[in-house]
Design a protein around this nucleic acid. Structure first.
Lengths: 325, 325
DNA sequence: GCTTGCTATGGAATCCATTTCATATATTAC
DNA sequence: GTAATATATGAAATGGATTCCATAGCAAGC
């Protein structure tokens, strides 16, 4: 396969000139430019980008760490990231980690090895301190609030959002509030839980362990919760559920068994998913697409400018009032 | 930043020996190995992978072309790909193309530029002939039946699957069959359409243009179809819909308006999505996860062995009988 | 007429690891 | 005791681009 040396030889110029043509540098005469272009065409030449990456120290690629690509939450964030990456002519390397720390570490090692220019961590099993050890090698951004760290972040205030949601329910007159949480893994789960407890305690509302459901991640899990509620002596009046798809599972199953929503059981979801729109589920939209897009723009800017000053961007959330509360 | 030359100098060995240690080659004495390892540790050395990629001509990365990552169909295929990639220690570069041909071409150019070792095309706007032009540069696999091409494929026989689905409906006594198709873009859409027409014609079943809906992609689109059916004088008895989420939108909206499923309107979906399980939608499962996994395994094998002989693997589908037919 | 600045070009150094080849010693085989 | 093989090591070539530096012609400014 041809290389620039050969192009140079055949076109009768130096490799420098070939490189200039390749990179649209000025200071190449029209005649030589044409000769180079012509030779490139003739030899069906294409650049070996690995050589370019080696000499420039950049790769034009950013890695994305997330646990499961087929969950709505993550696929939307990824959509936002991918859209911006396409605009910026950047490539995204997807690491679906299943929350395996050693896989996530491998990605951070790629940053160290200069295989990538930056890392976007959408959700992780790693401690912030571990991530900080890699900030010398390139920009890193997380999609959760990690406090004042040496890496950037975009996040919504889960505490505040959850609190606001509870306040909304409270304002509607509900006192007996239950709560279905998704994976316990992420940091946001525990933040929401503390918001939940603090709110109940401040408002003097009843806390019942049987109204709490953990690791409630799928539609089927939601349906299971509906079934368990049927047997319950003292049911919550409303459930706040982190994920509209889970809420949908619950609502559909509950209705099958004659429960009226919201009269017998009100439901508030999260994420503003299509299925939630369809079932008219009241929800908190935390603007996942925007989160992905913002994450990309921030890290891209940091790569471009070489700035290593961490940026922390707080994003809006939005309570969407619909028919299940 | 340190390189192997410096490691070699400080450890008092040659760069060759350092490279051997790095790559676990035999024929390094324990003493020198320890010295090298020690120096690596001390200097906090890490390999510049771009140099490795340049000299070896491999990158350990495969690109994936798909139009939208946040559609169930694609996110499941991606899940299958990502799972296998993790096992094989390969990296996936995601190109969310929105069916923009020039973006898809850029990815194929990456293959030419040696930035990646192979390309998985889940769905594309490109003609097979265009893809074939790149098969000299590395293995390519598509997730659709493209006939006997110079690139590999994994696919389900959409014609056969669709025909089977129609036969199933027919066996249940339905004669008036409608059809909601997703994006017109993919090649599979037109295959299904010809299966549909051929089936109706063979069985002497009525074809009505108003029972056909095209570009029906979202839950809301499904709901829209339900509304339009309400006004219809002569309604189909059953709808076959390419996507359970669309079917779900239709079913939920139809029920709101008093239509009984399947008595007033039967529905058959596609993809065996969670929402379909929840709503008990009869569906055709075309094993998307397996498709992604198989695609990866095939292309990975081709990269490993250097074989350029295209592989064509046909996958199973499965009619899942539930309550909407 | 001399300095300054712009355009145009190429030589050579650089990025960093892998791998071939050559060489040397140690061990095993018969 | 000699031939054959296994182990151990390093020098140098290799992969393919970018970029710094040096050089030179030519126009403009005063």
């Amino acid at each position: 396969m041809a290389n620039i040396k050969e192009i140079a030889r055949i076109a009768g110029v130096s490799v420098t000139t070939v490189s200039r043509v390749l990179n649209n540098h000025p200071y190449v005469s029209d005649i030589k430019r044409a000769a180079v272009l012509n030779t490139i065409e003739q030899l069906n030449y294409s650049r070996n980008m690995n050589a370019v990456h080696l000499i420039t120290g950049r790769t034009g690629a950013i890695a994305v760490i997330l646990p499961y690509i087929n969950l709505y939450y993550f696929s939307i964030v990824m959509d936002g990231l991918a859209h911006e990456a396409l605009n910026a002519q950047y490539r995204l390397i997807l690491c679906q980690s299943n929350y395996a720390a050693e896989e996530e570490l491998k990605v951070l090692e790629m940053l160290r090895n200069k295989e990538i220019d930056g890392v976007v961590i959408v959700s992780t099993a790693l401690q912030p301190e571990v991530i900080e050890e890699y900030t010398d090698y390139g920009p890193v951004i997380t999609c959760q609030d990690s406090g004042e760290r040496r890496f950037s972040s975009v996040y919504i205030e889960h505490y505040e959002a959850f609190w606001d949601g509870l306040q909304y329910l409270s304002s509607k007159g509900y006192r007996k509030i239950g709560y279905c949480e998704g994976r316990q893994n992420g940091s946001s789960a525990s933040i929401r839980q503390s918001a939940f407890r603090a709110f109940l305690s401040e408002r003097n509302l009843p806390f019942r362990e049987e109204w709490m459901v953990y690791d409630c991640m799928t539609e089927e899990d939601g349906a299971g919760v509906a079934l368990s509620l049927l047997d319950m002596q003292d049911r919550p009046e409303v459930l706040i559920i982190t994920g509209d798809h889970v809420a949908a599972g619950l609502i559909i199953e509950a209705r099958k068994h004659g429960l009226r929503i919201p009269e017998d059981l009100a439901v508030m979801g999260f994420d503003n998913q299509p299925i939630g729109r369809l079932l008219d589920i009241t929800t908190i939209d935390n603007h996942l697409y925007d989160m992905g897009a913002a994450a990309f723009r921030i890290i891209h800017e940091q790569i471009r400018t070489g700035s290593r000053v961490p940026v922390h961007r707080k994003l809006d959330y939005e309570i969407i009032e619909r028919g299940t509360v």
